[in-house]
Design a protein around this nucleic acid. Structure first.
Lengths: 215, 215, 215, 215
DNA sequence: ACCTCCGGGACCGCCCGTTTCT
DNA sequence: AGAAACGGGCGGTCCCGGAGGT
């Protein structure tokens, strides 16, 4: 069989691609309407996939949601927030830059729909232990990413030594979630950005020595 | 009509009480399961009220949710967070005390179900303009309450003058929401409280030079 | 309100009648296709009733089936088999006559679909304890009806005294079920009737004294 | 191809064994849950066979059921009931012994699930002509087996001559089915055995004048 | 001979809302 | 003001079967 034939075959019968199609469209639908509000039929009709294919790849709607958390939300979150900061000798500056980009370069989706993790957390964390497990795992990965970054900064002498990296990591994530929630509520970037400004000002206080907030 | 008949009628025919019953049980159900996940039939059977009574008092499920936002969530929130701070000459100290109480004296509900406003915001802010209007109104009332409190503190000389009361108010609310979300996700008071500690430490920086908590 | 007005109102909104409509059509459908094979949507469309009405009167498909057993199958069975025999001084003769009528005057339904009790028993007795409870209750009512009739015959001196009424009652019901099953299988009244002939010949042996089967 | 490869292939590619696996597991599932209630997917997962293999060996679910009737139910039934009786000079004694064994040495399955033939008959005899054909063929084989046995007994002088072997055969099968149904309904061996006692007593009346069980 | 992947229909249950009536 | 009957539609799930591939 030639390489071309393989490619052609891939087009008509490609489980990986099918799974991906479902996953992406399901993410969009759930992101926009929430877990309970999302309709599998809607996801199916928009992705051009059938019931049979869906239930071949996922055991249930809940299983689909779990896959979205693990395979989409978590990696994207880590990519957007942790990667640019982790391993930097000056994590505070890196984090501030990252935050500015993520809040300023906000796509419409982020303003309207908020943070995907936060959405699912609010809706599902108290309904099903399965969901909470995967949501917590994502939250922890995010938190620990920041904690590691700050600890490295402490070793490098750019972050104040007396701080607890874990506590700061948790607070930073918590703050980001709060700001995302505020942005989604008000839909007014001005309000959100002014609140974000206070947040960034706080981040400055994490540095060692010189740069004080009341300079 | 005999006196007994009147009493009997009073018991079954009490519009205010009926409305209140519906409202309270609906709040509980929606608080626990979200708006989409809540079932009117469930609310009805738990409150011992019938469909007829429900639709006499409320035009629709959405109308019921709006009433919950306006008549339960908003007043409770203002009572718990704004009242203890508003008008205080040292609002920062008052806020810190309030925050400690609200986060430490956490009832089980708050740990498991999170902040009611945040829950509804995440689920409904992007689905229906009606909902968003009432959610934003609540958010603004909360924010402005803090802003006023800080402005008063500035006039009293307990809060640093160069700060923008509106921005701080928005950030504080945003931070509270984020911490509530964290608590709901992890269900681990230790994690949430360590993040909250950072938040409180930040609040301390809002004071004027000489920090006089018990002055 | 005049009597006519009441009747007219009854026509448009008559819960009893609606319940009855559902019950009858559901019985027909389940009788013909079995419990698992029966479709609620089919029952609804044939009875002209809607889902809302159905689930107002019955909690589930299972609940509907239970109502059919209790309110249709059991009374009809007792009416057709037990009533003509119970209290008769010569129950054997009465039973033989009844059996002849029920097997000979068979409607098409009985030949094709068999005994409703037997059908449901075969399908459901081992799947759900709820079903079995109601099926056993029906079976027992039938059996005990015959037992009482035989005991009365014994007191009247028409039934041989050494026989155990309960055992005979159970055997007679068992035999009727077996014959109904045979009729349903073969759809050949000749075969079924020749087997039924042996059954009736056996019943003759239950009498006292003179009339022996080999007379 | 190496010897090992051949062995490996043998293990996975053994059409007869695969067919047998499917057949046995399908029988168990249908026996327990009925035809409509049985799930092909369930059968497949329990037997470790795939859809492809199933539809290679059987054209449809119905075809599978037909194979079960012809290749499992019929031979087992004939083996259990007819073989011990056929060709015996005293078929009545042989039948009584067989019946005692089959009803007393009841395995749990038989008590709970009843007679496989009876189950399928009740469910399917009136839905599909194909099914009925095979069910009737099984029923007839059973009936005729008994008829032959009784005719032989008549020639041997152990069975009363004036009886019609076909009628008795049909009645006996009918009676067995009825007793099996009773046992399945009540799940109470006492009730079933007392009814069975009456049945066996009837069988005794089939003998010629001098009852010589051990002659 | 066998297997993964997929097609699409239909099922039961529930849900929100309305109507009729007291 | 409140109670009960009813209207329909949509929800997730599962199911039988077939097509494509090895």
């Amino acid at each position: 069989m030639s390489a071309q034939a393989i490619l052609q075959a891939k087009r008509t019968r490609d489980p990986e691609a099918t799974r991906e199609r479902i996953l992406m469209h399901a993410f969009e639908e759930i992101y926009a309407k929430g877990y309970a509000g999302a309709s599998l039929d809607q996801i199916l009709s928009e992705s051009g996939v059938t019931k049979g294919a869906l239930y071949h790849h996922f055991a249930s709607k809940a299983d689909l949601a779990v896959a979205i958390i693990d395979e989409i939300i978590r990696p994207v979150l880590l990519h957007q927030w942790v990667e640019p900061v982790l391993g930097q000798d000056d994590p505070v500056t890196a984090l501030i830059e990252t935050a500015k980009q993520n809040f300023a370069g906000h796509d419409e989706d982020f303003v309207v729909n908020g943070c995907p993790l936060n959405n699912l957390t609010q809706e599902l964390a108290n309904t099903d232990e399965l969901f909470r497990t995967h949501l917590v795992a994502t939250f922890n990965a995010w938190t620990e990413g920041f904690a590691k970054a700050f600890a490295h900064g402490q070793r490098m002498g750019t972050v104040r030594e007396e701080l607890d990296p874990d506590a700061i990591g948790a607070f930073v994530v918590s703050g980001i979630e709060g700001l995302a929630s505020t942005l989604k509520t008000t839909r007014d970037p001005k309000v959100a950005l002014s609140a974000a400004g206070v947040f960034l000002a706080f981040l400055e206080t994490l540095r060692t020595a010189a740069p004080s907030p009341a300079a």
